[in-house]
Design a protein around this nucleic acid. Structure first.
Length: 281
DNA sequence: TACGGCGCTCGTCATACACT
DNA sequence: AGTGTATGACGAGCGCCGTA
């Protein structure tokens, strides 16, 4: 299967003015040329053309193409070089919830209560640093979840974790028996506090549906759902664009390889013609 | 230096598709 | 049928570059 053989990425086709549609046409054209020299691949290539003529779903296309060959990484699966723990991660629990603060920092709440922070420069949740909260634990199933963070009036960053606790950025790392402060290296410190204080502006608190009363809460719930949907779609769009880039790169590499193959086959054909054509002497 | 064109990235919306 | 996800389309913002 060509995908296994030619899963190489050389140049960025977008810089060369190819749209993904152009590339697909070009690949299809070259594939047809390729098939004329190899009749055994007709069925496979027909399948490929069928796939490419569908609405492009990069994950589906690549996964279908790679499904024939075990060991070929599928999009969506973590490759070894991408999925391995990046340097700087000291502890990596599987996060159950990922939040983004108003400054772009990612906060992952892992099972067991570990809070992991990553700086906005890192991609996704790479570069997460683990902070294990001693007084954290698995939230009760009915606990309200708040997915958003906001800048408090005092400039401190606040976000909320399952279990109705508030995590407040604390640059001074003041210690108080009522809460805990943690700091790792140059990471800012955070405190876990009981949510006694009023919510900062811009923070929408989620509540269980049964506790909603009145149009105000309903509106807040609708706003929260919309914000959550937008946030998820934002992340989905990023991931989709990343996959599309990867897909286009690999299409381009396939074009390059098939062009070389095509050239070789044409040369071979010319050689055979020279050998077997009747001499007119 | 100001301005316009161009390309790129990102967020959002609409919608097709998959899953339950 | 309802819900979540993936992706095309669109517009805004930004940086770069050439030109007057």
């Amino acid at each position: 299967m060509w995908w296994h053989q030619h899963n190489l990425c050389f140049r960025n086709p977008l810089e060369e003015g190819y749209s993904s549609g152009d590339l697909e046409k070009k690949v299809a054209t070259i594939t047809e040329t390729d098939e004329s020299a190899d009749s055994e691949g007709v069925i496979d290539s027909h399948k490929h053309r069928e796939i490419l003529s569908q609405r492009p779903s990069y994950r589906r296309i690549l996964n279908e193409l790679s499904s024939d060959v075990p060991g070929v990484p599928k999009i969506g699966e973590e490759k070894s070089e991408e999925g391995g723990s990046p340097p700087g991660i000291t502890t990596m629990a599987v996060p159950t919830s990922i939040y983004q603060t108003s400054t772009g920092q990612y906060i992952a709440i892992a099972q067991g209560g570990a809070v992991q922070l990553s700086n906005p420069g890192s991609e996704g949740v790479q570069g997460l640093q683990a902070l294990t909260m001693t007084n954290s634990g698995a939230p009760p199933p009915s606990a309200a979840l708040v997915h958003y963070a906001a800048q408090a009036a005092d400039g401190k960053q606040q976000f909320f974790v399952p279990g109705s606790q508030v995590v407040v950025q604390d640059e001074e790392t003041e210690l108080d028996p009522s809460h805990m402060a943690v700091a790792t290296g140059d990471m800012p410190a955070y405190q876990i506090r009981a949510p006694a204080t009023a919510l900062p502006q811009g923070v929408v608190m989620a509540a269980s549906p049964g506790s909603l009363h009145g149009p105000q809460q309903l509106a807040e719930e609708a706003t929260r759902k919309r914000e959550l949907r937008l946030m998820k779609n934002r992340e989905a769009a990023k991931e989709c664009r990343r996959r599309k880039k990867e897909y286009v790169k690999c299409l381009e590499s396939r074009v390059a390889i098939l062009e070389v193959q095509n050239k070789k086959l044409i040369e071979e054909l010319e050689t055979l013609k020279d050998i077997y054509s009747p001499k007119t002497d």
